[in-house]
Design a protein around this nucleic acid. Structure first.
Lengths: 210, 210, 210, 210
DNA sequence: GATGAATGAGGGTTCATTCAT
DNA sequence: TATGAATGAACCCTCATTCAT
């Protein structure tokens, strides 16, 4: 019972902090603001987290965990490379719409320079997907599709992930939303997704091209 | 003579500030830190700039001006869409390597949420390129553009810009550098560029499609 | 218990601030100086007061409240005009000796030019006494005394208050103290008061003069 | 010629500084503000005056000199005490209306606590008038002085000066102006002066008392 | 000598972190 | 154990004063 309460409280704190960090960045966020958002005292935050950095990391880890779990799910469904890519895109869109503050939080970390955060987290966050996506494109041949002649699977995996990240940001972060609006006006999001899939399909050549 | 000194000093301040803002963000950067970097006193910064925000905007405007001038140059050379895209990529790479702190600065403002900066600058920074790239892809076959059947030029322009932005960030920002490393190890940058051009050529200007 | 502590501390802060403001004026006073005087940290002052102005106003309001309460008491005692004037003088002297820093604070705001303080507070501080004193002299006839022929009650009330203010300042403020010393040497304060009362008595003519 | 220019400049600086100090006080006034008001560079101010305090003293001395010269003039005219008092009041009113900023400056110094200013200047400013006014009231019956029985000339001189000072302040300083308005509304200044003279006449020089 | 840009100490204010209750 | 008031370092910004030109 007590444990449950604590877990709920922890989740609430994490959520509030993720929101605050996502909106204001590490230095712009305030602990007392986070305490207010989560209706707890400043003290309990310091009970659970050593300091502001520690809380930031916890939020990040939490967001990463959620994002990865979403992406992992997208892999499990099928062997078909195209289908997997489609699943990844679709799952990512859903995640971005359900948890924009987690993506903003994630975007925050990409801005860290000269802090231990950048390198440390790049590995933790991207290490897994880098391997997954590269494998995906490496194995594509077995599934009947192949990359264009001369294409380097890891590079194409990298580009694929780049397009994914930008899609996530464009659905979650103020600046990127506005930027997308400049390109696309009030386009239906489904249409954008279909356009992206159209593009991604081209990653793979039909057999007669090879 | 006096004027020259002032201009040099101004440039130095802008440069230092751009570096500091790029590394630490608006709220994380400190005026006294910037003063130290540029070997001037705090007071002189306030002689030239009303306040921290004003300096931030000046850095941003300066970076934008530089980036746009680089990209504009890339357009002027030829009518061939493929060639233009290649020029844009190449110019961007050069810019990113010469002025990484400007790209970091630029990346910083993409993190602004709930601030007037985000919307205000998205328009200023992206408005022009959005039109340019969309026009580029709207151009008829005679310029070598052959989007896939069903492709929407603005969307593809958006994806093109997404890939460019990620390239710039990957060459300039700590986190993205590390992330790129995870995908590509110590790959030669030239190779990466050639892979990107391969992709762009195939997706945006390949000739074999109707 | 906790509340008591807070009240004591608040009173201490107000007192210290009143002293500092009275000595150095609004712009000359420093929050950190006030914090030191009251043996609290700078932060706690900002817990209770929004900013320096807010603290200044609080000190002023507190001083005004105290002064007015002292003067009101002096009115309640009797209907006899001469007695009331005597009470006002005596009460003012006691107040000035007990709370010189409040009078100095009050004197400070009389120095405010071009600030919202001047007009705003003149009304708040003087409005009440202006009416009280004018009424007092207006009603004097009913109480058997009357002003000299041609005397305008409000003007004489104004002069009365002028003499009072100068008395308060002369007992509390460095400059005025020194000035009084130049006129009076080390005269007993009681003697001065008696002289003032002698003068004030002359506000009223004996019946055969009228 | 050069000397003349310098003298004009000095006078201009003094005037501007007197205005600024009178409005904002010693700590509130800014040297660069004074420089701007007098259309000289900051440098020349420091050429003539060691520092801010020095300039403040110079302004004060100048104002004192002017005020004293005005009051001295009022003395020279006649032997009749009543006439002299009238002259002093009238001259003071004229001075206050012509040079309100000098009176404000003078008022500023009365606010100095714990600074060497207070004692130092009280003596310089008030020493002379204290003697003059006391002498005036000490004068024998033949000059029309008839203080009430038991009246102490120095004390009454002090009260007389108090009334004068308050009149000066009431004509020059924002706060006191507003306060006077509360008592007197938009009364003609001439009427107020006549009321003061009525009072002075009655209290200090009335003839009907033994 | 005159200028006004540059300096940097100092003051207002915020907020991460601590700790008495 | 939970609270949130208190602390005080650090930051933005101003301005008295200096000094190179």
């Amino acid at each position: 019972m007590l444990k449950k309460l604590t877990e709920e409280k922890l989740a609430l704190i994490l959520d509030s902090a993720t929101g605050e960090f996502g909106e204001k960045g590490l230095s712009g966020a305030s602990i007392s603001g986070i305490a207010k958002r989560s209706h707890v005292s400043v003290g309990v935050i310091y009970k659970y987290y050593k300091d502001k950095d520690d809380l930031f990391r916890a939020c990040l880890n939490n967001s990463i965990k959620n994002l990865h779990s979403v992406l992992s799910d997208a892999f499990g469904q099928t062997d078909d490379t195209g289908m997997i890519m489609r699943s990844i895109v679709t799952a990512g869109v859903k995640y971005a719409k359900d948890h924009p503050q987690e993506i903003r939080m994630y975007h925050e970390i990409t801005a860290a320079e000269n802090s231990s955060f950048a390198k440390e987290y790049a590995k933790e966050i991207e290490g897994e997907t880098a391997v997954l996506y590269t494998d995906l494109l490496n194995k594509s041949k077995e599934h009947g599709v192949r990359l264009p002649k001369g294409a380097h699977p890891a590079s194409f995996a990298f580009f694929f992930d780049n397009l994914l990240m930008m899609l996530h940001f464009s659905l979650s972060c103020e600046y990127y939303k506005e930027r997308m609006h400049l390109y696309l006006g009030n386009m239906e999001e489904d249409f954008l997704v279909s356009q992206l899939l159209l593009l991604l399909n081209r990653f793979f050549v039909s057999s007669e091209e090879a």
